[in-house]
Design a protein around this nucleic acid. Structure first.
Lengths: 243, 243
DNA sequence: GAGTGGTCTAGACCACTTC
DNA sequence: AAGTGGTCTAGACCACTCC
């Protein structure tokens, strides 16, 4: 039986949730893995069943776990594909969501610019993988992306053929580099399109584009990828609930 | 003691939550009002304390109620001021949030355009109050707004002096017209500024602006106000968490 | 001190999944 | 049939607010 660590003044379910979260951070359970049942956890940590339930419940509301009656409790897989669709109208004729295809235009190692190095919590000018990518729907460019990765964690990524890399990078980060993306923060802006991006996206000079900056992090909150995506404003559509 | 209505197959806490939500919709408790304690509710509906707690908890997570230890459970007041700040950088020199002042440019009754009538769930061409409003920070225009209200529900609003109407409309809707706004949906877009809006906001022709369409609803989901706000894209800044 | 919500316990029965 | 999470109960003690 494990003891609950941490501040005694915190409620038990809180300290138990902290302990379980830490296990995920440490990689004892990876995305998709099943956790021990609430019974087992309760016994292991010497708390009542209701208390372990409350801890699980908290981690579900944080988005770290998901529970299924009759099946068990699992580490949730983050789903980032939907992010695109939260912002842009990318749908097929019948309304279904289509992940835009992806064409890597360039990939090289160079010193990270200050803003990127800072976002990635790296020293100024530290080496980074810089990538430019174009995303297309039915062959029509819809998104221009610039992606930065810390070179040390992603060395293996440079060895892959760019042609074989599909549209979804995060599964590749995981399988090839052992890097798991757990969450991200995105910041939206809009601006008049630059001539370079206008050429890539086939837009009129000065047309409005939406700019999405994303910083992706691991379970331990360490920043792992920075990217900036630009898309035409007239395909942009974002909905928010206010309460 | 009240009986729990609704489908027997639903869990009790769910049916209790539905019953309490309905009371709020019916106006038995208004925003800011205190509800009976979990003890009283449990007894009144003939359920265990834990069950009434679970019902309360659900309504808290829906944003309908808020609970304070030692004080009680209250109908939450929606706070829409923050909406502005979720989208735009409107801060004073010391970083605090400032609600922009407000200048009503025009107010008249006319038939609602199709899109507005449809959003407000009114017949085509039904009468509506149309308002144009400019919002300023330190005397500098930062937001151009167009607001539509169904004329029947807001008749009293036309009698107010526009000069005396402050920047926050929803408290006035409540106090003057008995209309309570409970929530809203907002949709974001961006576009090149029109010449009319450019003049209002003091922007270059063709500069990018963010457009926010809001549909505000009552507790019963009835649409009550439609507005469209436009602000310069370079003051726009919106953050999203992806998990 | 009385009343509120927050935590915690120990037990029961149920619905669902998997074998 | 065994194991999982979901619901429900009845009770206890605690921390906090208000009078």
């Amino acid at each position: 039986m494990s003891a609950l660590s941490g501040d005694d003044r915190l409620p038990r379910y809180q300290r138990l949730a902290d302990a379980l979260r830490e296990e995920v951070v440490q990689g004892r359970w990876r995305p998709g893995d099943q956790l021990p049942s609430e019974n087992v956890i309760a016994e292991e940590y010497g708390v009542a069943l209701g208390t372990s339930r409350q801890a699980f419940q908290q981690l579900v509301s944080e988005g770290l776990l998901e529970r299924h009656r009759g099946r068990g409790t699992f580490v949730r897989r983050a789903n980032f594909d939907q992010s695109l669709f939260r912002f842009f109208r990318f749908r097929g004729r019948s309304g279904e969501r289509i992940v835009p295809e992806s064409r890597i235009l360039s990939r090289e190692i160079k010193p990270a610019p200050d803003a990127v190095a800072q976002a990635l919590a790296r020293p100024a000018n530290s080496e980074a993988i810089a990538m430019k990518r174009l995303r297309l729907l039915d062959g029509v460019p819809v998104l221009a992306e610039e992606i930065w990765l810390p070179a040390d964690r992603f060395a293996r990524f440079m060895e892959l053929e760019t042609e074989t890399v599909g549209p979804l990078l995060y599964p590749i980060y995981d399988s090839e580099c052992g890097v798991v993306i757990a969450r991200a923060e995105e910041a939206l802006t809009a601006e008049s399109v630059s001539s370079e991006t206008a050429a890539l996206l086939g837009l009129e000079p000065g047309a409005p584009v939406i700019v999405i900056d994303r910083l992706a992090r691991g379970y331990d909150d360490q920043p792992l990828e920075w990217r900036r995506s630009k898309g035409p404003a007239d395909r942009f559509e974002y909905h928010v609930e206010i309460r």
